[in-house]
Design a protein around this nucleic acid. Structure first.
Lengths: 335, 335
DNA sequence: TTGTACGCGTTATCAA
DNA sequence: TTGATAACGCGTACAA
């Protein structure tokens, strides 16, 4: 049960600790013969270096922190998987933490990760105040953050083109000659949210459609939140024929609300979601959505983080992720 | 950018490092006055102890490893969330790793976690050989493992009542007077799988229904795997009126296969899944399933792991998780 | 009540 | 090519 240390290997191979270290990390000169002998002992004892001790001296832990609002939101596992795969390829381990969209929890988690001396942090959907963030970044090394602008030298933003996504949705409605459309808005006023609203409204305005507050209805960015918001909106605005939801979960709630209210989708109402999570193609009718490559978000974020670690003095440009409208059964297409 | 250490605090408060340590961990005698002065300095400098250094001496890292087959399978986020919440309550951080049901990846990941000196490991759906597992456990401390029996002193099993779940499914079919039913089997021969098959077949046999290999059809335990398996099974056995799927994902695939083949669910065929993931109540028709409290699995596993850490010499009994049949729209109920 | 000295397991530096 | 020694940052006996 006692852990075997480099010292044990050294004794077994009858060399010094230092020589063992050289053999394992194959750096520095060392004779092939002694190296073989050492590696032999390593195998026999099943020795693996203690990462903690390594980290103490190298100041590298080979760990990163990934903060997400909630692992139960199916959007985030897809991103996380991208992070994890790239991490594993580079022998990194990932701490996964939920923030529940709560700024206090988030900063708490971030500080905990810092105390753990993770080499870097990927913060998805961060909701802490700008100042809190930059203060934290001042004392910490590389951070990749999504959908937030900053020019802090330690922070690299990765931006999904939310405005374009929302514009695509609006333009689809225009093209399909809808004249009254609405949006299901999130109660959590995130940066993504603001830009999705902005893009949608601007595009509607451009094409002469109503875009005031009366076409918006808020709710939690979940299925049940979307369900409630949809019912309220349709009560207020019964003539609406197109719905753009803040995200797919709300769109799914809207779908179910229509089902329960005897409204046919897409015959009576067309629905467009956002994110294109895996679920969209499973439900009936399948959901038209703004596609985002979630795996790539994660993979790119982690790749960039590693680059920042390798080149601490380089300032990297922010990354942009494209979006795409994917038409499915929840939108009618006649024109 | 330089990290502040306990030494910096000591200088700022004009005491020894030792006194700072005492102040933070508030143990040992220390005058209130100096303690206040130290804590003041701690706050001003924003000092947080280096977990790595702490761990070196205390031999506790306040980290655990959680291995799962795939975070993209919606079953696992629900469990993970339970683990993470309990972990956070105890100031623990969680490494989340995918194994892809690959024994080589899994043992690799386990060893990596061990090198990282995690205090314990929770292995969900482990697929490594018994001997590999016990060999690993010999050199490692507490492990909580699901759906696998062992009496290794370091390993505590947490068992979902798979046999009972499968029995409930079979008995439902019997009670609803189905006379020909089938099962969608997983290609991954996991321990859970074996018991679900066994429970289902035994119950069918008991009630005089056919239960030979011809009623089984294999596929990957995913939506598309279930889709393909369902089509093959129905081609072979067109008179089947009840389907028990290895898990909800396969059941969802079966649902879609029926949809595409013009078969009505539940009028023509009843479908029962397993796990009762969140998705089951979202799809149309909603899916009857064997409910398992996934969050509780995670929370219990983590709670048990902490108990094992606190009482290293105690041998804990294995935990059992009950199951329950939840009827929804995918099964007809006439009797 | 406070400070000194040692050790945790490893890598880096320098001398042999 | 190898080995002794000093860090890394902290907790803990023990001494003052």
């Amino acid at each position: 049960m006692k852990r075997i240390t480099i010292e044990d290997v050294a004794q077994a191979a009858d060399v010094s600790r230092q020589t063992v270290s050289r053999a394992i990390n194959d750096k520095g000169e060392i004779s092939q013969e002694t190296k073989d002998r050492v590696m032999q002992a390593v195998r026999e004892l099943g020795y693996r270096p203690n990462r903690l001790a390594q980290s103490m001296v190298t100041q590298r832990t080979y760990t990163v922190g990934l903060t997400i609002p909630d692992i139960l939101n199916p959007f985030f596992p897809e991103v996380a998987r991208g992070v994890q795969d790239v991490a594993r390829d580079h022998d990194y381990n990932v701490f996964l933490c939920n923030t529940d969209d709560n700024p206090e929890v988030e900063i708490d988690v971030l500080r905990s990760l810092a105390a753990q001396r993770v080499d870097g942090i990927i913060a998805l959907g961060s909701c802490i105040a700008d100042e809190t963030l930059t203060d934290f970044a001042d004392t910490y090394r590389p951070i990749v953050i999504t959908n937030r602008f900053t020019n802090h030298p330690h922070i690299n933003p990765l931006i999904v083109d939310n405005i374009r996504g929302a514009t695509l949705a609006a333009e689809h409605f225009v093209q399909q000659q809808h004249t009254a459309v609405g949006m299901l808005a999130s109660d959590n006023v995130s940066f993504s949210f603001l830009r999705r609203v902005q893009g949608f409204r601007d595009a509607l305005a451009l094409h002469g459609l109503p875009y005031d507050d009366s076409i918006m209805e808020g709710g939690k960015p979940t299925i049940s939140g979307g369900y409630g918001a949809m019912r309220r909106l349709l009560t207020r605005q019964p003539y609406i024929t197109g719905i753009f939801a803040y995200n797919d979960l709300m769109a799914l709630g809207a779908l179910r609300a229509c089902h329960d209210m005897g409204i046919n989708v897409p015959e009576d109402i067309s629905i467009i979601g956002f994110d294109d999570i895996h679920l969209t193609s499973i439900v009936t009718p399948s959901l038209t959505s703004i596609h985002v490559d979630k795996y790539a978000i994660g993979a790119n974020a982690m790749t960039r983080l590693l680059a920042m670690l390798d080149q601490p003095d380089t300032i990297f440009p922010q990354q942009e992720m494209p979006v795409e409208l994917v038409l499915r059964e929840s939108t009618r297409t006649q024109f």
